[in-house]
Amino acid sequence: MFARFSLMTTQVPGEALVSLKAVNKHYGQLHVLKDINLNVRKGEVVVVIGPSGSGKSTLCRAINRLETIDDGKIAIDGKELPEEGKELAKLRADVGMVFQSFNLFAHKTILENVTLGPIKVKGVPKAQADKDAMALLERVGVGHQAPKLPAQLSGGQQQRVAIARALAMKPKVMLFDEPTSALDPEMINEVLDVMIQLAKEGMTMIVVTHEMGFARKAADRVVFMADGQIVEDATPEEFFTNPQSNRAKDFLSKLLTH
């Protein structure tokens, strides 16, 4: 409730955990991000929705600089994203990322997928990393799969492992780039349940998704993007019951009629 209330007030920039200011990006002629301003506070769950090609995935990937931006500023916990190199690597360790296509390391076991980051990036001793990883795998419900290779798991299981892998780095914020779009329908819920649980535990999350149910259930804010712009930024109730823009009305009506 507090998070929702805080929306009504003007946000103080210093409080934002993730802040984007006047961010622009082009792919050749295509202007994919147009003057994006967005602040996400600690503990907030922001769901980014919009038609495909609206720039929402690019926005998500720009936050840990998997996509570079042309101009504007992106800061995590007050620190502006540095150029590619050691500093950026350090900052990325604090930003968990979950991809549409899972991207588990194909040649490593499930357990190794989760322990690799802590051991190699943070220097956690192997025994400790194994123990933490097993706890995380249990938490997302795939503990018994630990010795298997990624290809032996279902999509939903793989995505839950990917979430555990990101969590193992103890990130300050988690980015989800369409985490359920590559999943069979019956596997979507097992992933969403993990994400809802995470949201309840107070993780700061930015989630690009088409799952309106998740937005209603777990989001503090819904950001609606179209044609590279943020068109609406509202609470889920406001957005779903009373969208302001024609673009959003049009988008929602299409969802409901199908």
């Binding site: 050691k86 968990g96 991809f99 390391f105 040649h107």
Partner: peptide, 27 residues
Amino acid sequence: VPVGQAEAARSIGMKFGQVLSLIILPQ
């Protein structure tokens, strides 16, 4: 090697040399 492998490695904070030696080259 699918580009997502490197992206996943970078996003958990690995440096270029680690991404290459631990993730890309073994595959």
